[in-house]
Design a protein around this nucleic acid. Structure first.
Lengths: 77, 77
DNA sequence: AACCGAAGTAAAGATCTCTTGACATGTAAA
DNA sequence: TTTACATGTCAAGAGATCTTTACTTCGGTT
């Protein structure tokens, strides 16, 4: 069977990263809308990220990490 | 004008990240093929990464960083 | 010359990211 | 009750990632 096409995704649903993002956002008292604006993406994108089973580009991941005052490894490791 | 769709990409062509990846790979004496195997992606994907103007998923970025003994921030910051 | 590994180019296709818009729900304040 | 905000769902579409295959070129070795 051929390898799947499309972006490299987590082995299983990445609920861990999803929860870390949500938790950190709440710690900072940010709404999804606020985080969306801070990272310059749509609110839908933030919602998807907090649902897991979603593989953002490394550049979006860097923006989110910066907005949440964390590293990419902190959130997605 | 509507925002562009598709994965979040670097503001300009990210030749810096591209070169850092290539440099680090050479330091470790790895061929593109070897890095491709280590990260479980096709050789084409490695080539594209080293050309810049390419936005890998955060999961692929983490694999590459790990294979090159670096952090995502080290390579793509 | 013939061979081989490493790097590059090109093209087509599957799959996914990210967008917009519309709508639903719950909670808290006026 | 009405208003506002935060969160969530659904769906369609543009644009990108990643795959495979095939072919080319270059440097080194036999």
């Amino acid at each position: 069977m051929a390898r799947a096409s499309g972006p490299i995704r987590p082995e299983s649903s990445d609920d861990v990263a999803a929860e870390r993002i949500r938790a950190r956002r709440n710690e900072l008292g940010l709404s999804q809308q606020a985080l969306a604006r801070a990272t310059d993406v749509s609110r839908q994108t933030i919602i998807s990220m907090e649902q897991g089973n979603y593989a953002p580009s490394v550049y979006l991941a860097l923006r989110v990490a910066a907005a949440l005052d964390a590293t990419v490894e902190d959130l997605w490791s």
